[in-house]
């Protein structure tokens, strides 16, 4: 049985990746699982200079999910290239680096450096809801997004560019199309949804940043819908993200139109979640006599909903 999928020119041994910001730089998980088994590792977002992140409390739990306002706490490009990338290179998996900046110039410099360093793909983070400047502006303004993708694509040579879209827009297809038309090789969606929680005892917001990004099973139906919409509006591959806990969730995303998926919050609860999902996709395929996992991508497109009479 063939679990391999392609994201542009990037060939993955299976469709399971880790979502940026939930898997550190890979090292954090190496005692729990064999990184060689993953389709790809997407590392924590990298900026040109190190970032301190937001003050605590940075996270709080909500029903079937969690809010986070980490604020892109990261070690910066220089240390990533020197300390983290060589470690990841030992493994037979694809390395995808999530990047973020305040200006197009910053994204361009990051992409060039990572292209030179020979990473497998670059994921443009234009959708973090937790920093005041930059990033999100590109994710919520179509023209800004187009300019960004165009410039990065020009500067990063043949490297596969994935644009990670924000769900905090009224029509995701407009942004999907804008990214595709500007040369993005793939899309990943969704990033977290902006949310908020209040402690009624102290009568204060639960997060120091006041608002945060909602993730976990609570957001899965929204993510499925957006993947379904986006994947029908573009020809480039869509990577599905949002509340994937097990193989059933991953398969649901693929049926909705995702070529691959990213596992995020589930890694926190079960550090072996990605591996269990890979095994689960394999047994599902065996059970359904699917020779090639690519056959299920977008299978529900064009079909009608459940007809109760036939149930």
């Amino acid at each position: 049985m063939d679990l391999a999928v392609e994201i542009g020119s990037l060939k993955l041994k299976n469709p399971v990746m880790t979502a940026s910001g939930t898997f550190g730089y890979g090292e954090e998980y190496s005692e729990f699982l064999d990184l060689n088994m993953l389709g790809a590792v997407v590392v924590k977002g990298i900026s040109l200079k190190p970032m301190e992140g937001n003050p605590p409390p940075r996270i709080c739990e909500t029903p079937c999910g969690m809010l986070n306002a980490i604020g892109l706490h990261n070690i910066g490009l220089k240390r990533f290239l020197k300390e983290k990338l060589p470690y990841l290179r030992q493994f037979d998996t694809k390395i995808i680096v999530n990047i973020l900046g305040n200006t197009i110039q910053e994204y361009v410099r990051l992409s060039k450096a990572l292209d030179d360093a020979g990473v497998d793909a670059i994921e443009l983070n234009v959708s973090c809801p937790n920093v005041k400047k930059g990033g999100i502006i590109f994710g919520t303004d179509k023209r800004a997004l187009s300019r960004l993708v165009l410039k990065v694509k020009q500067s990063a040579g043949k490297r596969v560019i994935i644009t990670k879209l924000s769900p905090n827009v009224s029509d995701i297809t407009e942004f999907a199309i804008a990214a595709e038309e500007s040369g993005s090789d793939a899309l990943s969606l969704i990033n977290t949804l902006r949310g908020m929680a209040i402690d009624i005892d102290t009568q204060k917001p639960k997060l120091a940043n006041i608002t945060g990004g909602l993730s976990g099973p609570a957001i899965k139906p929204i993510a499925i819908r957006m993947v379904w919409e986006a994947s029908q509006s573009v020809r480039i591959p869509v990577i599905g993200i949002g509340g994937i806990i097990n193989a059933q969730d991953a398969i649901e995303f693929m049926l909705a139109g995702a070529t691959a998926i990213q596992v995020g919050t589930a890694n926190f609860i079960n550090p072996m979640a990605t591996i269990e999902i890979i095994h689960g996709i394999r047994s599902y395929s065996e059970g359904k006599n699917i020779d090639n996992i690519r056959d299920i991508i977008g299978r529900i497109h064009g079909t009608a909903g459940h007809n109760n009479i036939n149930l």
Binding site: K44, P55, P56, P57, R58, I59, I70, N267
Partner: peptide, 22 residues
């Protein structure tokens, strides 16, 4: 003590402020 999601350094949620940063 701080709110934490994973417990093993991945989520970066549980920081405290120290003389050498979070």
């Amino acid at each position: 003590e701080e709110n934490m999601a994973c417990g093993f350094g991945a989520c970066q949620g549980c920081v405290v402020n120290t003389i050498s940063g979070y």
